[in-house]
Simulated assay, not measured.
Amino acid sequence: MARLFVALEIPAEVASRLTLHRGGIAGARWIEPADYHLTLRFLGDVDRHMARDVDAALSDIAAAPLTVTLDQLGSFGGDKPRAVFARVQPTPQLSELQADLERAMRRLGLPPETRRFTPHVTLARLRETSPLDLADYLARHPIVQPIVFTARRFAVFSSRDSIGGGPYLLEAAYPLDPFGGFAPMRARRR
């Protein structure tokens, strides 16, 4: 079985800009820039038969390329911080793509996603980081000018069964094309 998720890739030049925010906080385990992504739908452990069904369902999704804007750093976990992320401005197009993916996966019988979709790019996982240290870090690391890119495809990635999951492997990619009629681009493994 493979542990899979559907995501937008982060271009190398955007990842490079995000790395400027690395460091300066105790208890952080920084994500490798090559592993930055915007998760659209976690699929979990999927056998080969379901993976083929997922591939067919994803091939049927038609959406236009998306403008993605990262505008500020934030954190998850409240009083027990567990992650630092770059926030992605929600847009109707991004929400619609995510909802289409959710509906397609539910039709296949995968359990519904229980967490509300909060578009973000995880930069670090935190362990035993104090909320005060985190607040200080966030105050010192603003995204001064929003980082904007165009997502021209979404992809399925596999991850290891470990904390943080990386490194992630590209399994298949699906062009964002409002006209449909496309076949998925296969990655190196199948």
Rank of each mutant, 00 (worst) to 15 (best):
57 A>I: 05
135 A>L: 10
75 S>M: 02
108 L>A: 12
65 P>R: 00
138 L>Y: 09
59 S>P: 02
141 H>I: 04
71 D>P: 03
112 P>E: 11
106 R>N: 13
108 L>N: 11
83 A>G: 03
110 L>E: 06
140 R>N: 13
57 A>V: 10
101 L>G: 04
158 S>Y: 08
121 V>H: 06
58 L>W: 01
81 P>M: 00
70 L>P: 02
131 P>Q: 07
119 P>K: 06
117 F>S: 07
158 S>K: 12
79 D>N: 09
116 R>T: 13
107 R>W: 11
129 T>D: 03
122 T>K: 03
60 D>C: 14
102 E>Q: 13
100 D>G: 05
125 R>Y: 12
90 P>F: 02
70 L>C: 04
71 D>W: 06
79 D>L: 10
112 P>Q: 08
79 D>T: 09
63 A>W: 01
65 P>V: 00
87 R>T: 03
80 K>G: 05
139 A>Q: 13
60 D>N: 15
146 P>S: 10
108 L>D: 10
148 V>A: 11
154 F>M: 12
77 G>F: 01
57 A>F: 03
56 A>F: 07
157 F>T: 04
151 A>L: 06
147 I>W: 09
158 S>L: 08
129 T>H: 07
119 P>V: 06
146 P>C: 14
85 F>I: 09
135 A>C: 05
59 S>E: 13
153 R>S: 14
157 F>K: 07
75 S>Q: 03
87 R>K: 15
121 V>N: 04
105 M>G: 06
152 R>F: 07
152 R>N: 12
94 L>H: 05
85 F>A: 04
123 L>M: 12
125 R>D: 02
74 G>T: 00
143 I>H: 07
100 D>C: 13
119 P>G: 07
116 R>A: 14
83 A>V: 01
137 Y>E: 10
68 V>W: 00
70 L>M: 09
104 A>S: 13
63 A>L: 01
111 P>Q: 11
156 V>M: 13
77 G>Q: 02
106 R>G: 10
144 V>S: 15
54 V>P: 01
